[in-house]
Design a protein around this nucleic acid. Structure first.
Lengths: 347, 347
DNA sequence: CCAATATACTGAAACGTTACAGATTGCCAA
DNA sequence: TTGGCAATCTGTAACGTTTCAGTATATTGG
């Protein structure tokens, strides 16, 4: 009953932002009550609850992240782990935008955790887990047997992968159906009478490399076309490398008359290489390419494109991680995006 | 003297990560001593200091961010504020990579704070400042009279702008010299005998719009060329818009014979528009464009390009913010990047 | 009418860190 | 010897939050 006004209590007029103590002072309640009232705890009277929430809204109370984090361990952070040393990763911004779109009306912040080519990809993940810097993690460049996924599964930290794994372990992911993409691409080329096809593969070692290669191979035998090996090239090589190797290939007598390319930037290089060899797109050879922006048709209208939506990927990944953090079953947080049909240039 | 081992003291074997208390227990010192020893405080004996630091390193001690943040208010976070609703912001990933490069060996984390077109650009900044979510902020799309810069200056929170302001207020920035770029571009076109030039401007309202327009105008009169107004177009319009408007312009009798374009994506659209009108790049018209990736020459080898390095921009911006946080004079944290010469295609 | 119980609220402790105000020791000058 | 002082080290409190273990009051059942 002796609620004396001490030095500690009169901070309502302090310069800082309002805290639970401020709210407690204003409402005449204890901090505990205020805390519980704000999160709709059942043991707080309905009227008190409304009153506290009203005052909180009025003065613009925002929980102090450090306080919450220190007490509960909850960071309200999700981390996007990125390899920062690959030539052309324009889609990265799309993924980021997709993620922020989803977390916009949650208390979550997005931190970007980079790692360089020289580092073990496990390093940044280990750092995040060891320092408890995030409640959830999103990784890309996923491998069939991915040590990062295994590690996080062991440590029990929620995560989602961009691309699937193949370890018999279940976890959230979002993936583009690259098997279907490669298949559609081959069929489209076959439809144009192309019979000798080359594949510009994803980086060897990543899961979607296998998916793409398999989709390509299966469709080849389905349509009765043959493969022209082009193993010296993959999309994370430099533009110059791809261009040069393509030109070499196209100068050979047994050159392909069709390409399937797994990335837009690589496609630019491939086309340049084709033209370096004195050949013409649409006449001597056709190219089907994935793209994330809508720009390839401006580049050469003869290109055939399939769109991959990375913004959607970002959103799905964010949704998946948040879902897992929220206690959902990881097995239900997996999604696969079906490629659009193969699109020719139109007007 | 009666240092009894209580329940609280024996947490050295706890499952959690080591804290100052763990370190104190292991070294037999007090937490205060350990804390100060780790930050090289002068009142700690040299040997003790070494001993503490050794043990800390051995067991992999990492300060708890929440603890530090709660106690000191220091978040060890810098925020990059981004507009997430502009067509093609492939350079965003470059800026991010540039930033992460610089903060990699600091305790700082990078958070991405988005805002959409419909929002007041001041909103995210206000949020960051009010919630104390970051020690420093990086903003882009800077305006001559930028309310965000003014706001942060008032609140005393360190920041850096990508692009300059023009309010008579001093703050860190990094900018590309767009005045010089536009001038060089005009001179290059004049060197090719082009005399009727159009400018594809940056977004109206941003500071570098003025810089670009002025550089363009001054160089025009310098070389004695004339401007073909093209005010209906700026680089943050849609590809389709730019393409259509360019085609319209090029079908007119008084069409330009040269373009200066402030962004690579817009350039693709402009070239498409030129070709829609039945004209040919290099013969009927020349185009000088800025680019951040190295891809424009693959698109059309007749293009003339000037490179803008956004990764560098990110690094400079990060350095500037960290500098200001570290107490440096904001006036010394300004940098301007000089454009490369205008580059024609080479092999 | 009393005890049991439900309802509504509360203070204290803890998370990990740093700042403040000592405390202990040894040494030197007077 | 004593007072002063420098060199080292230490406990306590505080940052804002949530959880634990209550307390006080009203309500119910017998």
């Amino acid at each position: 009953m002796d609620r004396r006004i001490t030095k500690k209590d009169d901070d309502a007029s302090d310069k800082g932002r309002p805290t639970l103590k401020t709210l407690a002072f204003m409402t005449g309640l204890g901090v505990t009550t205020v805390s519980r009232a704000l999160k709709d705890a059942p043991e707080i009277g309905a009227e008190t609850r409304r009153r506290v929430q009203l005052v909180a809204k009025q003065i613009g109370y925002r929980p102090n992240r450090a306080g919450v984090r220190l007490r509960t361990g909850k960071t309200n952070v999700i981390s996007l782990v990125l390899n920062t040393e690959h030539e052309l990763m324009s889609f990265v911004s799309d993924i980021i935008y997709g993620v922020t779109e989803v977390i916009a009306d949650t208390p979550y912040h997005l931190i970007v955790t980079p790692y360089s080519r020289s580092q073990d990809p496990l390093d940044p993940v280990r750092y995040l887990v060891e320092t408890g810097s995030a409640d959830g993690v999103i990784i890309s460049r996923t491998q069939p047997n991915d040590p990062r996924a295994r590690y996080m599964l062991e440590r029990g930290i929620p995560f989602a992968t961009h691309g699937r794994t193949d370890m018999g372990l279940v976890h959230p992911y979002h993936d583009f159906d690259n098997y279907a993409f490669a298949g559609e691409a081959v069929r489209a080329l076959a439809g144009k009478g192309r019979t000798r096809l080359a594949l510009v593969t994803p980086p060897v070692g990543l899961t979607y490399y296998r998916h793409t290669v398999n989709g390509f191979a299966d469709a080849l035998s389905e349509v009765g076309a043959s493969e022209v090996p082009f193993n010296t090239v993959s999309i994370d090589q430099s533009i110059e490398q791809i261009r040069m190797r393509t030109a070499q290939l196209m100068r050979r007598k047994d050159r392909p008359d069709g390409f399937v390319s797994s990335a837009a930037a690589a496609t630019l290089a491939v086309v340049a290489g084709i033209e370096d060899a004195g050949l013409q797109l649409g006449r001597d050879v056709d190219v089907v390419s994935k793209q994330s922006s809508k720009l390839l048709h401006l580049f050469r209208r003869e290109l055939l494109v399939v769109n991959e939506n990375f913004r959607l990927a970002g959103s799905e990944l964010a949704r998946a991680v948040l879902g897992w953090i929220g206690g959902a079953d990881p097995g239900t947080l997996q999604s696969l995006s079906t490629p659009s049909e193969v699109l020719p240039y139109r007007g």
